[in-house]
């Protein structure tokens, strides 16, 4: 399992390094530069030190967006992971039915993110949407463009609809990798379905579930296009997550300095979680690789 040790392998990595450096390092440096200055226009800028960071860190709207974001990402995990595992357990093990399930499940994952938003606008509009009409038909007031709670629920529903299939796919891959002998042994011992799940399937899925949790957390942390199309961050700031808030600042108001400071804070949060993700992945790798 030991790899060959050879620093010349660096040459193979150089192209990737260059292209990612252009798209990541230089822009990040620029963000750092912007974050310490007040920029009025081309060539007109003043050094302001850490003022923007101070302003952004004590900004109520940032706290709101951050709170929204963590609540959202947390709920995403709480709903999608158990649901995904349950669906994966219910899926047929092989044959054309399994293939059909996989294909149908994968469909939402391949839809452009802004189209996901569009689908849900059309689906939930109180006048033309199936869901909107159905809910209003039940006598409940539901309008995701006006009521903050409804908007939240709709975005959440959309997210669950969009990404639970990913958790299913991962959990299913984990389940398929368990040798049949384990189940035979469990059957001979007369283990209940719950015991089989708790002591065989769940431990064996630890690796894929770690990946699922981290991927879902990270990706929901960057969510932009779907809620942007569906609610535009509104009503008010109810569904304004970090990316939406940032784009509003950067493009909408063109506050380069504060937007850059905010970007850096956002990036640092992501960096921390990526690192935790990476550590977890490596432990998964050493624990039970294949």
């Amino acid at each position: 399992m030991d790899k060959w040790e050879d620093n010349r392998a660096w040459w193979l990595v150089v192209p990737v390094f260059l292209i990612v450096a252009i798209s990541a390092i230089i822009p990040l440096m620029t963000v750092v530069n912007y974050s310490v200055q007040d920029i009025f226009g081309p060539g007109q800028r003043v050094f302001v030190g850490t003022e923007w960071f101070k302003e952004v860190l004590t900004d109520r709207r940032l706290h709101e967006a951050l709170g929204n974001q963590f609540l959202f990402s947390g709920l995403v995990l709480l709903i999608e992971i158990p649901l995904g595992v349950a669906i994966a357990l219910a899926m047929p093990k092989q044959g054309w039915r399994a293939s059909l399930c996989l294909v149908l499940l994968a469909l939402p994952l391949l839809i452009p993110w802004n189209v996901i938003g569009t689908i849900w606008i059309i689906f939930t509009r109180p006048d033309i949407g199936l869901m909107g009409v159905a809910i209003n038909g039940l006598g409940l007031e539901f309008d995701h463009t006006a009521a903050p709670l409804d908007a939240w629920v709709t975005v959440m529903l959309m997210e669950v609809w969009h990404w639970t299939p990913l958790v299913v796919l991962l959990a299913y891959a984990g389940l398929r990798a368990i040798p049949e002998a384990y189940f035979q042994a469990a059957r001979i011992d007369g283990a209940s379905a719950w015991a089989t799940f708790r002591y065989i399937q769940l431990p064996k899925m630890r690796g894929v579930l770690t990946i699922a949790v981290l991927l879902r957390f990270m990706d929901s942390f960057l969510i932009y296009a779907e809620p942007f199309v569906l609610t535009g961050g509104g009503p008010g700031n109810a569904t304004t997550f970090l990316s939406i808030h940032l784009v509003k600042m950067a493009v909408g108001q063109f506050d380069l300095g504060p937007a850059a400071a905010f970007s850096l804070i956002y990036f640092l949060i992501v960096l921390l979680f990526s690192w935790l993700f990476y550590q977890a992945l490596q432990n998964v790798g050493t624990g039970d690789k294949r």
């Binding site: 620029t30 750092v32 530069n33 912007y34 310490v36 200055q37 920029i39």
Partner: peptide, 14 residues
């Protein structure tokens, strides 16, 4: 490099 808006403190930092 004007678009990158370099300043002395950030340059020192990098």
């Amino acid at each position: 490099l004007e678009w990158m808006a370099w300043t002395a403190p950030t340059a020192t930092f990098f």
